[in-house]
C-alpha cells in the first residue's frame, strides 16, 4: 500500500497527528477539558465550511475559527462552572454556522462528510508539510512552557498558590488545542478528532504515574490506532475514522476494566 503516494502521505500525517494528540491529550485530560475539546472540533467543522465558502483551504478556515474561539472561550470562563453551559451555546452557534456556510458554498454532501469524518485520499505533500509546521509550533510552545503547564494542569491549586499566571496559561493552552484540532481533523475529521485528543491520554492515565510516562504511552496508543486504522481502511475500504474510534475506545474500556480489577483486589 505504500506504493501509493496518498497512503504514504496519510501515514506521515497520521504519525504527526498521533504524536501531537498524545502529548496534548495528557494535558487535556488533566485539565478536564474533554468537553471543550469536543466543542473546538465542532468549531473546526464550521471553520472548514467557512474556508470552503470563502475559497480558502479548509485548514485555514479551521485555524481561524478555532483559534479565535479558543481565545473567546478562555476569556469567558477560564475554569468556572459556567463553562459547560457557555461552551454548549458556543458549540450550537458554530455548528449552525457550519451548516449555513456549506449550503452557501453550494458544495455537495460528500464534501461535508469529508470534513466531518476525515479522509485519507485528499492529503497532499504540501498538506503534510503544513501540518508538520503547525505541529512543530505546538511542540515548541509545550516544550518551553512545560513545567508551568504541568504544574497548572495537574495541581491547579498549587500553581495558583505559587503565583503562576494561570489564566494566561489557560488561554495559551486552548490556542494550542485549537491548533492541534485543526491539524488532526485532516484525517479523522472534525467530528471524531476529540477521540485522539482524549482517549489515548485517558487510557494512559491508568497505567503511567509520571507525566512523561503518560505522554509516551498516549503517543504509542494513538500511533497504534492511527496506523492500524489506516491499514484496515486501505484493505477494507471502510472509513478510517471508524477504525481509529473503535480501536481507541476498546483500549479505553480495557483500561477501565483493568483498573476495576486492580481496585477490586
Amino acid at each position: 500500500m505504500f506504493s501509493y503516494e496518498f497512503m504514504r502521505n496519510a501515514f506521515a500525517a497520521g504519525t504527526i497527528i498521533a504524536v501531537i494528540c498524545g502529548i496534548m491529550g495528557v494535558f487535556v485530560i488533566a485539565r478536564n477539558m474533554s468537553f471543550l475539546t469536543h466543542t473546538l472540533s465542532e468549531i473546526g467543522f464550521s471553520g472548514a465550511a467557512f474556508g470552503v465558502f470563502a475559497g480558502w483551504a479548509p485548514l485555514n478556515g479551521m485555524l481561524l475559527f478555532t483559534v479565535v474561539s479558543s481565545v473567546i472561550v478562555g476569556q469567558l470562563s477560564a475554569r468556572s462552572e459556567r463553562r459547560e453551559a457557555a461552551t454548549s451555546a458556543i458549540s450550537a452557534l458554530f455548528i449552525g454556522m457550519g451548516i449555513l456556510f456549506l449550503s452557501l458554498a453550494n458544495k455537495n454532501a460528500s464534501y461535508a462528510t469529508s470534513i466531518l469524518f476525515g479522509s485519507v485520499i485528499g492529503i497532499s505533500v504540501s498538506d503534510v508539510r503544513q501540518m508538520l509546521w503547525l505541529s512543530l509550533v505546538v511542540l515548541i510552545v509545550v516544550f518551553v512552557l512545560y513545567r508551568f503547564l504541568k504544574f497548572d494542569s495537574f495541581d491547579h491549586t498549587g500553581a495558583r498558590v505559587k503565583g503562576l499566571w494561570t489564566n494566561a496559561l489557560s488561554i495559551t493552552f486552548l490556542v494550542l488545542v485549537a491548533l492541534s484540532v485543526s491539524v488532526a481533523a485532516q484525517i479523522v475529521g472534525s467530528l471524531l478528532i476529540f477521540i485522539l485528543l482524549t482517549l489515548p491520554a485517558a487510557t494512559a492515565k491508568y497505567f503511567a504515574h509520571t507525566v512523561g510516562g503518560m505522554m509516551v504511552l498516549a503517543i504509542a496508543l494513538a500511533l497504534i490506532g492511527v496506523w492500524s486504522g489506516l491499514t484496515l481502511s486501505y484493505f477494507t475500504n471502510y472509513p478510517v475514522s471508524f477504525f481509529i474510534a473503535a480501536i481507541e475506545a476498546i483500549f479505553y474500556f480495557v483500561a477501565l476494566g483493568w483498573q476495576r480489577l486492580q481496585t477490586a483486589e
Binding site: F143, V144, R147, F154, D155, A159, K162, K205, A208, T210
Partner: peptide, 18 residues
C-alpha cells in the same frame, strides 16, 4: 495519576527543561 514523588516535583517550575 501522579506518584507522590512526581507530585512533589511539580513545584519545581521555571523556564527550564521539561
Amino acid at each position: 495519576p501522579l506518584t507522590i514523588r512526581d507530585f512533589i516535583g511539580l513545584n519545581l517550575t521555571g523556564w527550564k527543561l521539561p
